[in-house]
Write a protein that binds this DNA or RNA. Structure first.
Lengths: 331, 331
DNA sequence: GGCATCACCGCAAACGATTGCGGAACTGTT
DNA sequence: AACAGTTCCGCAATCGTTTGCGGTGATGCC
């Protein structure tokens, strides 16, 4: 930046003081209409933009939010980011995006960056390997509100917004039962994640409540490839599944790969249902029926929550966005 | 931020001047080892982080890059963003992400934000509707380097990094010819985009050079849905295609939808080849053969270019990342 | 004419860091 | 003892903005 327009420059040109120019631009009642007009006109001409850094220094309010995700390339987070960015722009905030790569060390480093940039608030999705959230809590105590989202710490008192994990799994299970499917292969993710645990618990609970004797076969997979392998294995067994449930998009892509390789017809040979934000299921034909967990909606909710925190209406709580079944033709 | 540690706080605690503390932390030779030790120890204890805003104000160097994309949710940009973020962290920069939503008005507004935040450089992907890039050029002239990427302006003198659009289309065309396919349906995007024009020109050129009589049937589509419709239409005609070429991921998803709906077997009934960054083609079975245009690589290249600009090694030029054929089983 | 009441504007101190310059205290030399 | 040369450190200005407070000139009123 060579020489941007500053208050000083405007003030000199109009033979006014810096404070008068500042107040004129802020429509302060102390300034006469005539002066205001002169100032605003020249400011527009010179394309004056207040130096955000000077403002932050003076006001101690940076108007920047931090956003930490494992990776922006994961299926889910891009829609979350999109929602965040929309809200930020609408409210005059900027976004500083940080990736942890699911690495706790980078996560800590990112927190340092957040402090350095004096962010006014942080949206964080912790890694599965994060053992201590002390650094997060310290930030929160020092006056920087933190909204945990999606992968939230089990820990007691902090602000969280989540997808309705239990509800989504419940809807999926109920759909399966309603469709009278008997031999269910249920593919879940890493069991260390609370999201997996919650979905799994809710899923099996429904079968129990409905007194289903033939309980789903549960498998835990780490990625798409393992999902594919497990699916293949299931079809080699004598008791072939008639339905596959996938806890996430990544798992769905793996299972679908296997289904396509086996040349199975959906829903004739096999039915499928998943939990997803909706992009991936619509790529297939027939489109996969899924329980929607909208990253977009979650982003909106997180932002609203952040604003409430900043406004001081701040008792910690956990909020969820509800889920809805989106019918494809896969079950 | 309630009360972060500042140089002043440290200096008072140690009965030193602010300047001494500042120099001690920067390992300035004027300061004795003993003092340096005292200072660094206390700074570590109090978790001192320099106020990025004060630093920027004083040094006029914000260490923040702007990144403007149509939408972070598009198939291609997430990998670009991931690469950017990696490089930024490695080099001590932060990233301010802005979405234009392919709306020129928002694009202008975003540029205002960039100026307000005194970014040190901007990575920009313009919208198809951007008629004037004057605002961009003004930023560049005022000392903020701009690297255009992917969707770059046709305009003369500006720094651009692009995918090897022509080369990628050329490889696809050559592959089709090599496989002796005769009835090609080629799906291209909006013809106003230079990317479309370049790919189309290179694609048809190859057929001409090889003296192929049966030229590909060219169709322009705006989105996945139109791609689906055009594909269906092609199969209703008497001269059914034996190959479909898709210029982008979005188009591929549309074409694949139609192929699945028609229950066509790949590569028996129809063969497919596309240009992609690799995520989408691998979802299908058989995996779609594609010419790789890596957003990740492009991100790395853009960053390198930015650094060169900032270092002053700055003659404008257009760089490209080369393409490579990734064989699936679809052709 | 004297005095209070406005409307309008400027002074100056902050915010936190960087940096040129000058200066004190010490060592060593003649 | 006087002086030069080091070593180590502090003073003060500066970046661009915000804001409390005080001040000037004009007006109105008795």
């Amino acid at each position: 930046m060579k020489d941007a327009t500053t208050l000083k420059k405007i003030s000199r040109a109009l033979n006014l003081s810096i404070s008068t120019v500042s107040r004129a631009l802020k429509n302060h009642p102390d300034i006469s209409e005539k002066t205001k007009l002169k100032v605003t006109e020249l400011a527009a001409l010179l394309e004056y933009e207040p130096n955000a850094y000077a403002v932050q220094l003076r006001t101690n309010n940076s108007k920047v939010f931090g956003l930490m995700v494992p990776s922006v390339t994961y299926y889910f987070y891009d829609s979350f980011i999109a929602a965040m960015e929309e809200e930020c722009r609408a409210n005059g905030y900027s976004l500083m995006i940080l990736q942890s790569g699911d690495n706790p060390a980078i996560e800590q480093e990112n927190l340092r960056l957040c402090r350095q940039n004096r962010i006014t608030g942080l949206f964080a999705c912790i890694t599965p390997n994060t053992t201590s959230i002390n650094a997060f809590l310290k930030l929160d105590e020092s006056g920087i509100p933190i909204i945990f989202f999606d992968k939230v710490p089990a820990f007691e008192a902090c602000n969280k917004v989540c997808l309705a994990d239990a509800a989504a799994a419940k809807i999926a299970a109920e759909t399966i039962i309603y469709k009278k499917k008997k031999r269910v292969l249920a593919l879940f993710g890493n069991n260390n994640l609370s999201i997996t645990q919650r979905r799994l618990a809710a899923f099996t609970e429904i079968f129990r409540l409905n007194n289903i004797k033939a309980l789903p076969g549960i498998e835990h997979v780490q990625n798409a490839d393992e999902a594919k392998i497990k699916t293949h294995a299931a079809f080699k067994s004598k008791n072939k599944p008639d339905t596959i449930f996938c806890m996430s998009d990544e798992i769905l892509t793996g299972a679908m790969k296997a289904i396509q390789e086996l040349q199975l017809k959906i829903p004739h040979d096999i039915t499928v249902i998943s939990i997803s934000n909706g992009i991936i299921p619509k790529l297939y034909y027939p489109e996969i029926t899924y329980v929607e967990t909208s990253g977009y909606k979650l982003g909106k909710l997180a932002f609203t929550r952040m604003m409430a925190c900043l406004a001081g209406r701040t008792f910690v709580q956990e909020l969820t966005v509800d889920s809805v079944l989106v019918e494809g033709g896969s079950i």
